[in-house]
Structure formats: structure tokens, C-alpha cells
């Protein structure tokens, strides 16, 4: 069931996920489409998330946005007191400026492998940190080996922060500790995107990849063909999987396997390395005292790709 509506306010709105913003020219959504989009969200009872560009919007736009309860996702350059989620693209940021913020940090794997030591400082001050590896689909077997080692180091950082009395939220390692079922991106199933051209897309990535790939518009409503394929019960690999923190990116799925409901091996392995390190973190914290006593222990498994289970 749909729960969220993402509204891209401009073609240059910041990317908060795996995709790159491929439209360099500003194109602000029309005021009329913005109003209609908000109206659509209200009628469908959707939580609206506005995605901002790096320039200030006209006041009339801000007035319209304020007609509905919403979340604001903004680039670091536009960070202000109205920002709910701030997107940091790369590793140039002022830690103090991010104090108490909910942060999405976009990075390539290469940069993460070089800069991961900086994350402890960030985790100490932010409310929540989500790291998005923008080229996760291109990670090789040796990258995965290295990623495992990086996660183990980050796990130790998270553990020491926990032991200092804080409760860090870090998508790669603490989300899995709290979850009891799949909690993924939900594009096409729980979330839909309205683009500046007034058309709906499965997520912003589908818009930037191919503008003709819309799934409806404001005049005619949504028309998502084969909609069932975006739900977990129609994802034969994912429904057998317990890496519940996985982003399960349907855009990456389609890019790598040509099907929105089938993830690549690279996405699965990365998610399982995170899951397994989360397990180690849970066991280590529990060995030192009571930690999430009501949450079931994460089981030990002998695979990194659930595709192997269904092949058996």
C-alpha cells in the first residue's frame, strides 16, 4: 500500500540515493503541479517528502509546501532549520554543522574505503547516519572482502559509542538490530515519486534514467503496470532473505538483472556483509550487558547470497 509521496521540486534536486542527477539544467516544478501533487498526496493519505535543489525556492513555493505536513530533504549547501534530512555528497563537511542532524552520506566504494575512519566522529554527533554506496553494483569479490573488514572496524566504533551510553543510528549496522521484518526502500510499492514534469515515476532514479518511463500523471492518476512485482511477496529471492536492512533498490535491480524484483549478487552480498557484522555487534554488546532483550538473535548463516538457497 502506498504510504509516501516523494516530490522532486527541481530537475537539479539533490540525489539522496544510488542514482545520479543527470539533468544539469534547473527546471522547477510548476506551481500548479506542486499544488496538484500535494492534493494527490492528501487524497491518498500519503506522507510527502520534498526534495530540494541547492538554490532558494521562491516564497510562493514555500507557502504552498507549507499547506501540508511534510519532510524536507535538502543538500548540505541548503541546510537550514527546516531541513529534516540533509544529504552530504562526498566527504567534505563540517561535523559541527551536522550536530543532531539526520544525514544521508553518498559515497563511492573507493572513497568509503579510504575515509571510513571519519564516520566515528559523525556517528558521535548525528541523530542518524545513512551511508549510500553509489556504485554498490560494481563491487568485486575483492571489494567485498575489503568491505567486510571496513564494516568490522565500523562495528567496533559503533560498539564503543553504544558503551559510552549513546544510541547511534547507522543504517549499515544498527538498522538490522532493531528490525523484525524487511524494511526497504519500497519504491513502487509504498513510495511513489512526482517529478518536475508533472508525471509519476517509481522513484527519482527511473525519472533521471528515462523520462518516458512514467507510471501516470497528475491528470490521470497512477498506472503502475505489473505493480505486484514491486512487493516483497513477488520477489522470490528477497522473500527468503533476512538481511532486512537491505535497501532492496528496485532501480538497481532492473539495471543489473533487468527485473525490478530480482537483486544482483553484488547487492545481496553487500547487504549480507552488513547483516553478519550487525550480528557480531549484537553478540558483542550482549556479552557486555543487556542489549535489546526483546529482539531475537540474528542467526548464523553460511551464505552471502540468498539466491543460493532458492537454487538448492
Amino acid at each position: 500500500m502506498l504510504q509516501y509521496l516523494v516530490i522532486l521540486l527541481d530537475d537539479t534536486s539533490v540525489s539522496f540515493c544510488h542514482y545520479d542527477v543527470t539533468k544539469p539544467e534547473r527546471r522547477l516544478i510548476s506551481l500548479d503541479d506542486l499544488r496538484q501533487g500535494i492534493r494527490f498526496g492528501m487524497m491518498e493519505n500519503l506522507m510527502i517528502q520534498f526534495i530540494y535543489p541547492d538554490y532558494a525556492l521562491p516564497q510562493e513555493y514555500l507557502d504552498v509546501i507549507d499547506t501540508i505536513d511534510h519532510s524536507n530533504i535538502k543538500p548540505l549547501s541548503a541546510l537550514d532549520c527546516e531541513t529534516d534530512i540533509v544529504v552530504v555528497d562526498g566527504w567534505k563537511y563540517n561535523v559541527a554543522k551536522l550536530n543532531g542532524a539526520v544525514v544521508v552520506l553518498r559515497t563511492s566504494w573507493n572513497q568509503l574505503s579510504k575515509n571510513h575512519n571519519n564516520l566515528k566522529g559523525l556517528l558521535n554527533v548525528v541523530m542518524r547516519l545513512s551511508v549510500v554506496i553509489t556504485d554498490v553494483e560494481r563491487m568485486t569479490a575483492s571489494d567485498h572482502e575489503q568491505y567486510k573488514a571496513v564494516l568490522e572496524l565500523l562495528g567496533k566504533d559503533v560498539e564503543s559509542i553504544c558503551l559510552s551510553g549513546k544510541s547511534p543510528q547507522f543504517n549499515l549496522l544498527t538498522d538490522r538490530l532493531m528490525l523484525t521484518e524487511m524494511n526497504n526502500c519500497g519504491a513502487g510499492d509504498m513510495t511513489i515519486t512526482l517529478a518536475p514534469n508533472g508525471k509519476f515515476y517509481i522513484c527519482p532514479a527511473f525519472y533521471y534514467e528515462n523520462e518516458a518511463d512514467s507510471v501516470g500523471d497528475l491528470n490521470n492518476g497512477l498506472n503502475i503496470k505489473n505493480r505486484q512485482l514491486y512487493s516483497l511477496d513477488h520477489a522470490p529471492i528477497c522473500r527468503k532473505c533476512d538481511a532486512w536492512q537491505c535497501r532492496r533498490c528496485v532501480w538497481l535491480n532492473r539495471k543489473t538483472t533487468l527485473e525490478v524484483n530480482i537483486p544482483s549478487r553484488e547487492q545481496c552480498v553487500a547487504a549480507h556483509l552488513e547483516r553478519n557484522t550487525s550480528r557480531q555487534l549484537m553478540l558483542s554488546l550482549r556479552s557486555k550487558g543487556t542489549f535489546l532483550p526483546d529482539i531475537e538473535e540474528i542467526k548464523e548463516i553460511d551464505y552471502l547470497d540468498p539466491f543460493e538457497i532458492i537454487r538448492q
Binding site: 522470490p236 543489473t256 538483472t257 533487468l258 524484483n261 530480482i262 549478487r265 539466491f307 532458492i310
Partner: peptide, 8 residues
């Protein structure tokens, strides 16, 4: 990766 949908 392109074979996974078929085998799943």
C-alpha cells in the same frame, strides 16, 4: 546477474 531472474 542477467540469469538470476530466470533461475529464480
Amino acid at each position: 546477474n542477467k540469469l538470476r531472474p530466470f533461475l529464480a
